[in-house]
Computed example of a mutant assay.
Amino acid sequence: MASGQQKAQQNLDAFEVWQATQTDDDFKQITFKGQLNRIEVAKGVGCGKSALNQNPALRKALKSLEDSLRERGLYHRCQKVPKKRLIYRSNMITQRIAGFLILNVYLY
């Protein structure tokens, strides 16, 4: 049975082989929310999804791949909506709902 370090190295080697066999279109197909879908990557590599997070070398290789894909323009980093804008939008929706409720009371 392989030790943890040996298994980590095997997973890293498998990732590098998997990465080399993928085309840009393959990467686009497994992109979700500005990054590669971890479940699909794990399936392709033949490791558990947890290995992608727990193996530092594998995590670094995956981040490097995603950075490379962004530099090549295959996908962009997912932009988060600022909290301030969400609060403003929420207040605006609340005001509209209140207006509809008042209008509804006048109609009956």
Rank of each mutant, 00 (worst) to 15 (best):
A14D: 09
G48C: 05
G99V: 05
A42K: 04
T94Q: 06
Q6H: 10
K28L: 14
V81C: 06
E40F: 02
V41W: 01
I97W: 02
K28P: 05
R85M: 11
K43A: 01
S90Y: 05
P82H: 11
E16A: 00
E66N: 00
Q10K: 08
F15G: 04
Q79G: 06
H76L: 12
Y108G: 12
K33G: 03
E40D: 03
W18Q: 06
A57R: 07
G99T: 14
S90G: 02
S3D: 06
L107S: 14
L86C: 04
K28S: 13
K49D: 04
H76V: 15
V41D: 06
R70A: 03
A14L: 07
P56Y: 09
A20N: 14
G34R: 04
Y108P: 03
R38A: 14
S68T: 11
G34N: 04
Q9S: 12
G48I: 09
R77C: 01
C78Q: 14
F27M: 10
Q22G: 13
Q5L: 13
V45L: 02
E66L: 00
V105H: 02
K28T: 08
R85C: 01
K43H: 05
E40C: 00
T31N: 06
F32R: 11
R96G: 01
A57I: 02
M92D: 09
Q22V: 15
Q95L: 06
M92P: 00
G4Q: 13
A8S: 15
Q35F: 01
Y88L: 04
K60S: 10
Y88I: 08
L12D: 12
D26Q: 03
F15E: 03
F32H: 13
G48E: 15
E40A: 09
K63G: 12
I30W: 02
G44A: 03
Q19V: 08
L101H: 13
D26H: 08
G4F: 08
V81K: 11
R89G: 02
K80T: 15
A8N: 14
H76Q: 15
R85Y: 09
L65W: 01
G44M: 01
G99L: 08
C47S: 12
Q54G: 02
A2V: 07
R72L: 07
S50V: 10
K49E: 07
S3I: 07
V17M: 05
I93S: 00
L74T: 04
R85E: 10
R59F: 05
Q79L: 08
M1F: 08
K49M: 09
T31D: 00
R38C: 02
Y106Q: 10
L74P: 07
G34Y: 09
R85V: 12
R89Q: 06
T31M: 11
N55D: 11
S3V: 03
V81Y: 04
M92V: 10
K33Y: 10
S64W: 04
N37L: 05
K60E: 11
D25A: 15
I102P: 00
V17Y: 04
T21I: 05
T21L: 15
G46P: 04
L36Y: 05
T31L: 05
R77F: 07
L62R: 03
A51S: 15
E16K: 08
V105S: 04
A57T: 11
